[in-house]
Design a protein around this nucleic acid. Sequence first.
DNA 1: AATGCTTTTTATCTTAAGATAATTTTTGCC
DNA 2: GGCAAAAATTATCTTAAGATAAAAAGCATT
Lengths: 192, 192
Amino acid sequence: MTDEIISFITRYVPLTEEEIAIIHEQNLIRSYRKDAVLLSEGEYAKECFFILQGCVRSYYLIDGEEKTTDFYTESQAITPISYTKKEPSKYFLSCLENSIIALGSTERNNQLLEKIPKLRSMVAQLNSELLIQKQVSFDDFKSLSPEQRYLSLLETRPDLFNRVPLYHIATFLGITPVSLSRMRKRVSTKVK
Amino acid sequence: MTDEIISFITRYVPLTEEEIAIIHEQNLIRSYRKDAVLLSEGEYAKECFFILQGCVRSYYLIDGEEKTTDFYTESQAITPISYTKKEPSKYFLSCLENSIIALGSTERNNQLLEKIPKLRSMVAQLNSELLIQKQVSFDDFKSLSPEQRYLSLLETRPDLFNRVPLYHIATFLGITPVSLSRMRKRVSTKVK
DNA sequence: AATGCTTTTTATCTTAAGATAATTTTTGCC
DNA sequence: GGCAAAAATTATCTTAAGATAAAAAGCATT
């Protein structure tokens, strides 16, 4: 049932049967309804998340407008900044779909790291990978025009367009929903 | 002489005298002239860098245009993606000023990590911190207008404006130099 | 002081994004 | 099938950025 977590981890470090059992024991799995809020602005994140099924969105609320910064889907881990830094969150996390999510509290995660120390190496590798990914996407974002960013997202994450409303994709691309709509029209007439 | 490196490290892990001596031994320090290139597109990075004195810029060359993605100054470490991933670099690193830089090759760094294993913890902490920083700047970048980004940079890194040509700052802000110049004029007349 | 090079600004024109409001389309639901 | 809410599009007007070219200002060096 939580094989996704095991295969996620074993991309970084090998696990024995025993260790797999320990991880299964520790698993806390929850279901959330669409629009359920996993973390609010101002709140201290007590947990990090691993998405087994569904889709989660992170966003800032600025002058009453939601600015989406990320979409997380199956087999992605979410470690809120607030979880790491022990400070109030500046952004929200909420479910775009009914979702099944594994939770790790600080205590539970620390226990796991005590019992299976090599998980520290996994975390280190993962962070290093995420840092590189983030840097690459940021660099791309800066050097591409909104239209190029849209076209690029169409290629790299086509799945999103089937499960996420366009107005969230718009703010994720750093533009307004109205502008995205206009752009899509422009692009489609270009192609023809 | 390389106390900066020691105090950089001890922000993350304590060091004994012995360990400090080991680090000093391993240090390879070089001087570079303004415009010296530390890493070229297409090249495999053999080293990572720690800036003791001076300023380094990272940039992509796109359609003959340089797009600056970062400025590194005193006491900042640079670990090229190419160094970590062992693949050709997509960007350049070059000196904006005459600079004094400590170099760490893969071999030398691995030796250090063998001799002082707790440095792994430092690297892990540093990466986690850098990931958070990168995420925050990316989120800001997306939600701010070019003008707001300019004003924010003026506050967060005023030093840059004294040592870096505006046309590099412009591409760093994701706009053209002409546009930055126009914007500065607009902003200055607003204030009056 | 004169020259050449780098950096910044100005000007003009074009294009696309922001703001706002209204309308249309789609979707879910009783 | 009809209704309400959510999502997407359209229209209009304003504002700022991109492209390009040219001029001006700042520097360094001889």
